[in-house]
Simulated assay, not measured.
Amino acid sequence: MTTAYDVQILSTGGYVPGDPLDNATLEKYVGPLPDDVLDGIQVRTRYWMIDPATGRHVINNSRMAERASRQALERAGVEPEELDLIVVCTATPEYSLPNVATTLQHYLGLETVAAIEIRGACAGWVQALDLARRQLEDGTARTALVVGSEAGSPILAPHFLGKDPASVRMRDRLTLYTFGDGAGAVVLRAEPAGTPAGTAEPSAFVNACVGGLRKPGMEIIGGGTDVPQAEQLRRRQLLQMKVDVPGTTTFGPQVFVRAIQEMARKDGRSLGEFDAIVLPEGNADYFAAEYEAAGLPAADIRALDGRIVENLADVGATGSAAVPLSLDAGWTSGRIRPGDRVVLLGIEASRYVYTGLSVTWQAPLPA
């Protein structure tokens, strides 16, 4: 007879590198943005793993993942040796191989563990969490660490290093002001269903790519195998981040509306019955003017008020780390409490992927 297991999130952890880089300081390096544009992107501070004056790396992706992981493990009272599974999501690894999951395993001092890496950016951490949840539910593993870590600043640096700030293109400034680095992690544990420690409400999961025939909303070009290396070296920049601002602005609200409506249907709840919706890269006002046009009823728009958990203004858009960093901020601030029904929602712009997972929160406020 197969044993059924319930899965709980025991703890979160978060790490952002260095000191906060506020807009006034960033302006000295990359030039200004108009006030209305700054208000639109919402970011007041971000953290970079590079020194903005020199481009020198202060830390790397895997070490940020380690810092967040160790904090989550300590809060959970779990030793690294208890882990059966590590799942890491990132779009900015140090190397193509070895992957960040196995490098994190090495930093945690683990000889043997199941280690998986997902490259899904803003939507990928929720995919990673669901993958781990399913392996714990079927008994494949008992204790898992799920990490999202992103190091975008080294890609951004060539846009401004060694240049007169006045010469930095406005479209590049928009990207520079938007993105930050960091890592977030959670520790999961499975307990036999029906036991006091193994009583949990079932989760609901949604996942779709809805931009398969659209122009990419975001691209990171270079360092891959699209053309010969000699041709890549002749490009204006070896690595370039491109964002389709008009496309993401117009289509992004539609992706969000589709995602949150499907999540509510799958979970069998109205939006007003969720206690917290972790939507890290933009609060309820970010697309508010576009929600109704994208098909979200006025009652649902009102229901979002006070339920969105996000920290975009404080850390910037952090890709794979966005959902776990927002979740960490929500839990440690007391915004997310035991008994809350929580939606973790990630939306990724390159091909417009959305993914969502609902959980009933059980972890008490960390000491």
Rank of each mutant, 00 (worst) to 15 (best):
G198E: 07
A114Q: 10
H57F: 00
L365C: 01
K266Y: 01
G212V: 03
A200L: 09
Q362N: 06
P165A: 14
P20D: 10
A151V: 12
T45P: 12
A68H: 02
L238E: 07
L279K: 09
L238A: 11
P20M: 11
L21E: 10
R56K: 11
T3C: 13
R46A: 07
R235I: 13
R44F: 12
L97Y: 11
M49H: 03
T45Q: 15
G148C: 08
G319L: 09
K163Q: 11
E281S: 15
V315N: 14
A91T: 14
R56V: 05
G139V: 14
R236H: 14
A293Y: 10
A367T: 08
E348D: 15
L238S: 07
E81A: 15
D328W: 07
E281A: 15
A208P: 01
V87E: 00
P93K: 03
N60E: 13
G295T: 02
R351L: 11
V186M: 00
D285V: 14
P216R: 11
T103G: 00
D267S: 06
D22K: 14
A128F: 03
L188T: 13
R171G: 04
G339N: 04
L33P: 02
V87P: 04
G14W: 01
T2E: 15
L327F: 02
A193P: 09
M241Y: 08
V186K: 00
T248E: 01
P228C: 05
A367G: 09
L26P: 04
T112I: 09
Q71E: 13
L83D: 01
P216T: 09
R133S: 07
A123C: 09
G120C: 08
A264L: 02
